[in-house]
Design a protein around this nucleic acid. Structure first.
Lengths: 211, 211
DNA sequence: CTTACGAAGGGGAAAAACCCTTTTTTGGTA
DNA sequence: TACCAAAAAAGGGTTTTTCCCCTTCGTAAG
C-alpha cells in the first residue's frame, strides 16, 4: 500500500507544485493539501485523514510549522513530519527538528531529492543531510539550545529592543535599575552575548520581538 | 501575436510553476526561464530573446531583482517588469517600483489575478493594486523615504548591527574609531534616534540588514 | 572660491557592562 | 508549620563603551 502524504503550505502555488511532484511517485499518494497548521489539525480529527508523512512549511499564518509540529509530535506521534522551507536561519531549522520533525528540505528541492527524502523517512524514520546533521551536533554540544529564559526575562527583552535606557525600562517595569541589569546580565551569560545589540538580534531571530 | 514573457526566479519549483501558469494563457507565451538576473542579461544579448514582459523575483543570488530591474530600465526600457515575491517589506517593494517595475505580485497569486495583471501591464503599462498605490502615495508624501545615507554610512550601519564595539568596527573598516563615531552621529541626527538600538531597528526595518 | 564630504581627533558626561553581595519572596516538602 | 532552596529584587563599585559636543584638514565637485 502507498504511503499517504499531506502537504501543508500557505503558498497555494508551492502547495500544488509540491503536491504535484509527490503525486508522480508510485510509492506515495497525496492525501490532501492544507494551507496552514490549523487546517491540518481540523482534518486530523477524522482518523481517516491521518497520513504517514506531513510535508510542513515553517512560516505560516494562523498556526506555524513549529507549533503544529509540536502538537503533532504529542498527539499523533506516528505521523512523520518533514520540514519544508525556503531558507531559514539555523535556529528555525533546529526548532523544527526539536519540535519533532524527522528532517528538513529546501522548497526548491529537485524531484529526485524529494523522493529520496520521503523514502528515507519511511525506511529509516529520518532524513538528515550533512548540513542538518552538523547543525544537530553543534546544538547538542553548544548548550546554547537552552533558550530557557524566564518569563520576567522575556518581558525585559521586549523593552531592551527599544531605544529606552535601562533606567527607563526599570521605570516601565516598576523595578530598580539594578534588577533589570540583573536580568540583562543573566541573559548575557545564558546566551553568551556581549552587549545589547546581541540581545536585540537574539530576540528578533527567535521571534521574541518583531522589528 | 502573443506577448512573450520571461520568468526570472532562483527557486526552480516556483519558476516552473509560474511558467506553467503563463503557458496556459492564450494571450501570452513563455519565451524562456532564468534562475537569476545575470542569466537574463546574458540571454538578452541576443535580440531575439527580448520579451515583452519579465516576471522578476526580488531575492536572487548573483544579481538580484532590484539591480536587474535598474539595468533593464536603462538598457531595455521597452521591457515591462513585474515584481514577483513572497512577502517583502514595504521598502523592498518600493525599491522595485522605483527601479522601474510596472507592478508587484505576490507569488501565491491565483491564475486569474496573474492573468489580470499581465493583461493590465500590456494595456495600461502598469498594474497597481490598492496596496501598492497606497505605498507609492505614502512614499511620496512621507519625507521619511529620504533614507539618504551615504555609501560609507550604510557600510558602517551593517557593522553596527553586530556585537562589535565601535573600536572593532573601526578596525574592520580601516578607519579611526573617531571617524566611525562620526558616521554614527550623523546617522543619529538624520534619523532622529538616540542610541545604537535605534540604529539596528532602522537598518532591519528598512531592509538594510537581515537579522 | 565656496561647499560638501570623508577622515581624524579631544574632552567630558552618561550609559552600559562586569564584577560580587545581600535581602526578600516564594514554592515545595519533611 | 517550619525549613530549605531557588528565584526575584536590589545594591555597591569599577571599567569600558557610548554619546554628544565641537575642531581640523585635505580633496573633489560645483
Amino acid at each position: 500500500m502507498k504511503n499517504s502524504i499531506v502537504v501543508v503550505d500557505d503558498h497555494t502555488l508551492l502547495l500544488q507544485a509540491i503536491g504535484g511532484m509527490v503525486k508522480d511517485f508510485k510509492e506515495f499518494e497525496v492525501n490532501y493539501l492544507c494551507k496552514n497548521g490549523q487546517e491540518l489539525l481540523d482534518k486530523l480529527k477524522n482518523p481517516a485523514n491521518i497520513p504517514d508523512i506531513v510535508l510542513m512549511d515553517i512560516n505560516m499564518p494562523v498556526l506555524d510549522g513549529i507549533e503544529t509540529t509540536e502538537i503533532l509530535s504529542r498527539e499523533y506521534p506516528q505521523i512523520k513530519v518533514l520540514a519544508l522551507s525556503v531558507e531559514e536561519n539555523e535556529d528555525t531549522i533546529l526548532k523544527m527538528l526539536r519540535a519533532g520533525a524527522k528532517g528538513y528540505l529546501m522548497k526548491d528541492t529537485k524531484r529526485s531529492i524529494l523522493k529520496e527524502a520521503l523514502l528515507q523517512v519511511v525506511e529509516k524514520g529520518y532524513y538528515h543531510t550533512n548540513t542538518v546533521s552538523k547543525l544537530l551536533v553543534n546544538s547538542l554540544s553548544n548548550q546554547t539550545d537552552d533558550i530557557c529564559l524566564k518569563e520576567r526575562e522575556k518581558e525585559f527583552l521586549q523593552h531592551a529592543c527599544t531605544e529606552m535606557t535601562y533606567k527607563e525600562i526599570a521605570d516601565k517595569m516598576f523595578l530598580s535599575p539594578k534588577t533589570v541589569e540583573g536580568y540583562r546580565d543573566s541573559i548575557y551569560e545564558k546566551l553568551n552575548i556581549r552587549n545589547r545589540i546581541g540581545l536585540v538580534l537574539f530576540a528578533i531571530r527567535n521571534g521574541l520581538f518583531k522589528p
